[in-house]
């Protein structure tokens, strides 16, 4: 049962990720991206990581994607806006995409041991009590550093978005 579910979710995730790229309409792309996040949430639930699953929905599907959709609705992009790309742009895009493919293939070909480590694995690690203990005991310093990084980014965003004295935007 779990294996079939895994394959179903993976197929759906890959399909919707491809549709994000192939959709002509940016709003459709965002909606496919949301679908992709739901597939990832399904994977987290399969891994018994309930907290991560629900936080993934709250943060990504519930907040960040709403803001994405918000911005794209404001931009009001036309569906055929991207047709007139110059050939040089296409050439550069193909080269950089090909380079990424080369890097991915070379990394994946080195991977020999695909088995998960079974010894010392605790299936309850994804529950919120255990996750909290691990985060605040074993990984306290990286956790706090990450929060400082977020704080810096937030302050930066507020500074960029702040209205200058005497300036009016409307």
């Amino acid at each position: 049962m779990a294996v079939q579910l895994f394959y179903f979710l993976s197929a759906l995730a890959v399909l919707s990720a491809l549709m994000v790229v192939f959709s002509r309409n940016p709003v459709h792309s965002v909606l496919y991206l949301i679908l992709m996040f739901f597939c990832l949430t399904g994977h987290y639930i399969l891994l018994n990581a309930q907290f991560l699953a629900i936080v993934n929905i709250i943060v990504y599907a519930g907040a960040i994607m709403v803001l994405f959709l918000f911005v794209i609705m404001f931009l009001n992009l036309k569906t055929d806006a991207e047709k007139g790309q110059p050939p040089l742009m296409k050439f550069i895009a193909v080269i950089s995409g090909g380079l990424l493919l080369v890097v991915m293939v070379s990394i994946l070909s080195k991977v020999s041991n695909m088995e998960a480590k079974k010894e010392g694995f605790d299936s309850q690690i994804g529950l919120v009590e255990n996750l909290g203990k691990v985060l605040y005991k074993d990984y306290l310093l990286p956790f706090e550093l990450a929060s400082i990084l977020f704080l810096a980014a937030m302050v930066g965003a507020v500074m960029l978005g702040k209205r200058e004295a005497g300036e009016r935007h409307f």
Partner: peptide, 18 residues
Amino acid sequence: DINIGILYVFAVVALGVY
């Protein structure tokens, strides 16, 4: 009965705006 019930409620509320 899930052990993250309140977060589930919060997540569904967040999705309501779509």
